[in-house]
Design a protein around this nucleic acid. Structure first.
Lengths: 150, 150
DNA sequence: TTAATTGCAAAAACTTTGCAATCGG
DNA sequence: CCGATTGCAAAGTTTTTGCAATTAA
């Protein structure tokens, strides 16, 4: 999905909720898209603050991230210790993550069968799933190779 | 695994690390075992503080929870918003969780095939898994039934 | 006009830490 | 005795919020 498409869908979302279309909100989307697929809020706050023209305060960024989660463009994908890593899903299909605990590298994957098995488990428990998150923590191939050098 | 067995393994763990065997640490294990399988730290701190004989301060509880995680008796199993729910795994076999976002109910499940598929994914990425967490958020059967009453 | 939004600073919630006193081995 | 542990209070992080000024509709 194109960025412009997301923004116009977000605009519709805001209208439908009775919220206002402000420049700040859309500039934050641009910045998040620029930043890359994964970010932590404080990281984003500092990054935005360090740019020549500041577009939004810390509170507005926090509030907008919450709004974008509600809208569905952003997801909390990794919870590691006290850190939360968000993903700008931007219409990307659903997927899970491998996280290298050594270098922080994030690898995305999708396994249809895992999804199906989850649905099965939910059925067995008469549980209606809304969303899920699978995080696999470990060591990536690069870090493993590096540790063998010693 | 029996509580006493866990405690004696923990004792060995402490010795092996050059740490000390203190009464506080073992009383905290007892309290966690008493509390139930899932807890949040602040909840536990308040619960312990409200008992006639206080056994450990907030810092000691935080420090001991960290130690027990290192030891492997405790796991961070659910990360929801800014909350962290720990589990006293106590030698229970590995499993994942369904979390009802309405009432907070936690249902444990285990699906061998999901585990196998995860291993397969890791192999495909030459990724060495250390641990993982699968959280499925949704509505439990009880809450669904209740919402149909209206 | 009027209701939502923003920025700021303050507060809240959670967690870690420095330090002096204490305790275990 | 020596080094680890504890409790306390202080500080660190991350996130939320009250409020007055501003802005969108």
């Amino acid at each position: 999905m194109q960025l412009e498409e997301i923004k116009s869908k977000f605009e519709r979302f805001l209208r439908q909720k009775g919220y206002k279309i402000t420049r700040g909100r859309f500039e934050i989307i641009d910045k998040i898209a620029d930043y890359g697929p994964h970010f932590e809020i404080e990281e984003l706050v500092r990054w935005i603050a360090n740019q020549n023209r500041s577009i939004a305060s810390r509170s507005t960024i926090y509030r907008t991230v919450r709004l974008l989660q509600e809208f569905g463009a952003i997801r909390e994908v990794i919870k590691l210790g006290n850190r939360t890593i968000y993903e700008f899903t931007a219409g990307k299909p659903h997927h899970e993550h491998l996280i290298c605990v050594q270098c922080g590298k994030i690898i995305e994957f999708y396994k249809e069968e895992i999804e199906e098995l989850q649905d099965k488990v939910c059925e067995e428990h008469q549980f209606t799933p809304l969303n899920h998150r699978l995080e696999i923590f470990g060591i990536c191939s690069h870090c493993k190779a590096k540790s063998h050098e010693d």
